[in-house]
């Protein structure tokens, strides 16, 4: 009897707690999967079967139909579906990778270097940026405005700017970064739209990638900062004594150790960009539209087209699931890294 509650080895639970664990995991699995099952069932229904009340099992209590699947994948909407799908497939991974590179680098910098940006410099910069924008608002050509703001900034920096000696630290930089995510996208949609219009980048994937990189950078920096902190600095010190450069240390020591964190972070960023809706809607027209907009579009004057939506959500989630299954192995490797490290 006692053996039932005894664990055989570390991290391997006893049979009783294993059973309990399975029950708990099973309940949550059901909670997670049931809505998805409902999507699958709904995608096989005709409109009238949805409106008439709940039917649960195809073939048993209703006759399934592939009408909605046909409509989305091969029928009238297929052109829209595949075009937006392609855009999503291109935009999301590219922007996720770029974000991860930039974000991890600066997260590394924030954990290994000390920065002291001076308050005076920051305020003069913000002031000059505001000045430039006001000037542009009053009709000054924007290139002229930016250059003159630049000149003013340097003048101020070399005169007044030097008098303010107070400076900020790494944590302040990190907090400034995360604060860039605090403003709801709705407030910045119009300015960003105008920005990309000026750059002639509206309705391009490039615009979407740039936007997504900047909106997701703070998350990457914050998550990676915590991971990198937990990696012992001794290894790097040894490497530095052996004459390895910073970049080499970063590339061949820090990154491999941070793989679990990198993978998890990559997954988030991928998911965020894969699913982003509002900015994509505004920055894209016919060419660069992404998939979430097709889903949201299924709620038109006829009420939500549940069956079409279900199909779209399902085909949209499949590649991400595949990605999660592939990357899951790498997350698992985190355990090994931990063992080696000890």
């Amino acid at each position: 009897m006692n053996r039932l509650f005894q664990r055989k080895s570390i991290l391997r639970p006893s049979p009783a707690s294993m059973a309990l664990s399975y029950v708990a995991l099973g309940i949550w699995t059901f909670i997670v999967l049931f809505p998805l099952y409902w999507l699958v069932v709904t995608s096989l229904k005709l409109p009238i079967q949805v409106h008439e009340g709940p039917f649960y099992l195809p073939f048993v209590d209703f006759q399934p139909s592939l009408d909605a699947w046909y409509y989305i994948v091969a029928g009238d909407l297929s052109k829209d579906t595949w075009r937006t799908y392609l855009n999503t497939v291109i935009v999301a991974p590219i922007s996720a990778v770029i974000t991860l590179i930039l974000g991890t680098a600066s997260a590394y910098a924030l954990t290994r270097f000390n920065y002291q940006p001076r308050l005076g410099a920051i305020f003069t910069f913000i002031g000059c940026a505001a000045l430039a924008i006001v000037a542009i608002a009053f009709g000054v050509p924007w290139l002229v405005a930016i250059i003159s703001a630049l000149v003013i900034f340097f003048l101020l920096l070399s005169t007044i700017g030097r008098r303010f000696k107070r400076s900020m630290g790494n944590d302040d930089i990190a907090f400034w970064m995360i604060s860039q995510r605090m403003l709801p996208p709705i407030a910045v949609v119009i300015p960003i739209y105008i920005l990309f219009q000026q750059l002639n980048l509206l309705d391009t994937r490039t615009a979407l990638i740039i936007t997504y990189v900047t909106i997701n950078l703070p998350i990457v920096v914050w998550l990676m900062r915590d991971y990198l902190r937990s990696i012992p600095i001794e290894l790097e010190e040894c490497a530095a004594i052996d004459g390895a450069s910073r970049y080499r240390i970063f590339w061949s020591i820090v990154l491999p150790l941070a793989v679990p964190g990198l993978v998890a972070t990559f997954l988030f960023v991928l998911v965020f960009t894969w699913n982003e809706y509002l900015l994509a809607l505004f920055l894209s027209g016919a060419k660069a539209q992404t998939l979430p907009y097709v889903i949201s579009s299924q709620n038109a004057t006829r009420g939500p087209q549940w069956w079409n939506m279900s199909v779209l959500i399902l085909i949209m989630i499949i590649p991400v699931i595949a990605m999660a299954i592939v990357l899951e192995r790498y997350i698992a490797r985190g355990l090994l890294v931990g063992a080696v490290k000890g």
Partner: peptide, 18 residues
Amino acid sequence: FLWPAVLALLFLSIFPLI
């Protein structure tokens, strides 16, 4: 290491914010 991210944020965050 740090600047690319800071630049990207400055480019697309400060302007819309103001």
